[in-house]
Design a protein around this nucleic acid. Structure first.
Lengths: 237, 237
DNA sequence: CGTGACGTTGACTGTAGTCAAAGAAGGTGG
DNA sequence: CCACCTTCTTTGACTACAGTCAACGTCACG
């Protein structure tokens, strides 16, 4: 069983040959544990390794003038967090853990070799970065077109769908280390208003979150309220 | 002079060999003119060609439940509009022209061959799609953290910077076929409020737009107001 | 058992949306 | 060339949604 098992689960569009998988495994240069709320990369600095998330939650974010964060992505097990840093060579945002994480690091030199020798694997890695772009688009939609309740609901629908793809949600409950200010940073709202919207979702018997545990009471209802359609995640049934 | 001249101007991070450029040229299957406000691709349908924009303005957008658009990208000359549709195989959004356009179409089969034979070109194409992802992230930031005036200002700063990279803006004026409802669809606001914010930008002597012509009175001032930093566009000086 | 971080609530404020009306610009056909 | 129609722009009055500020409650941990 490979550490890339979850990667294949949530990103496999073209199945990978055993040979390709072995090459991917071989490109891993180190595996390590990182505590919660720990910075992994800073905007604008050039990078030569990319991070693959084996376990935990990682966010990518940008700061405004006053230093208030806007999350632009939340990653779960099986995500290649900053693979886009390989072609881009530097990042345009910061990366940090939310909860405690286990990560694998891949050197860009190793990726150069994959791009040279493994066109199928290259296309899968490319695909993987484009999935993140598709999620970015959905975040734009969420912020631009949904009202406060739907924004929060939509955000949790996405997290749930991503976790389910790697077996970490059964559609009813899952663990999630985000606190209310984090959710606010993701949804472009204040923590106070997040609190009110969570209350509304609870009272409408759609979902709740307490102490890192999310319970979904009515997934179809939540998705309906939030105009959530998981097709942008390209998850294969 | 190649039709990919603008592509190289705004996307060149690694310069392309003459050989690679020729291969890219050869992959073009047709060039055509498309009128303004014309649909080019519909969400969820599988696609086998990608569109490169030679001239004009194209937008990508998603509809909410009531059919109100949220633009997720605006493309100008030199952009590979839906190259991400190549690895993804289908789109998660619609594509349409804003003004009249000239486009080139590239068959995905031709791209398969490039990926197989041209690792450098492949990496440049990959890079190009990641530049769009970086812009998506900036749009998330814009919608999540900026107030109405800054959102509109930031949007025009981006358009200006993109146009300048391909020689279509001198930093003071440029053409842009977007009308106020379009800007609203991009910034997650109503057309009425866009109108008020444009008035404010005019009164503050920062910029104006009239009948398809944008005039920037004070670019540093506009960028300052909008918290705009062009580094995410990865434009080489 | 005290401390600090997180969650909850209320009262008030302010920004952006809604609705409506009228003016300006551009295109079309007579 | 003008009349007409449509689309875009502008403005005002009113509404509502989300932010702000502040206080208090709750939980986990040392």
């Amino acid at each position: 069983m490979s550490i890339f098992n979850d990667f294949l689960l949530n990103r496999r569009r073209d199945d990978l040959s055993a040979d390709d998988l072995m090459a991917l495994e071989a490109s891993v240069h180190s595996v390590k544990d990182v505590p919660a709320r720990h910075s992994l990369a800073i905007s604008k600095q050039s990078i030569t390794v990319s991070t693959y998330l084996i376990e935990g939650f990682i966010c990518r974010y940008m700061d405004d003038r006053e230093g208030i964060r806007q999350l632009v992505a939340v990653h779960v097990a099986g995500d290649f967090v900053d693979l886009h840093g390989y072609p881009l060579k530097r990042l345009d945002h910061d990366v940090a853990t939310l909860g405690p994480c286990k990560i694998a690091q891949v050197r860009h030199e190793a990726l150069d070799q994959l791009v040279r020798d493994k066109p199928n694997l290259t296309k899968l890695l490319w695909f993987s970065t484009l999935l993140d772009a598709a999620m970015h688009r959905e975040w734009i939609f969420r912020l631009g077109r949904l009202d406060a309740v739907a924004r929060v609901g939509h955000f949790f629908c996405e997290i749930e769908a991503k976790l389910r793809a790697v077996g970490l949600s059964d559609g009813r409950m899952f663990s999630c280390p985000l606190i209310q200010p984090d959710i606010g940073e993701a949804c472009g709202m204040t923590a106070v208003h997040i609190n009110r919207m969570l209350k509304e979702l609870r009272e409408r018997k759609l979902m709740q979150i307490q102490r890192g545990h999310v319970t979904i009471f009515d997934l179809p209802g939540l998705r309906q309220l939030s105009e959530f359609d998981p097709c942008y995640l390209f998850i294969r049934e």
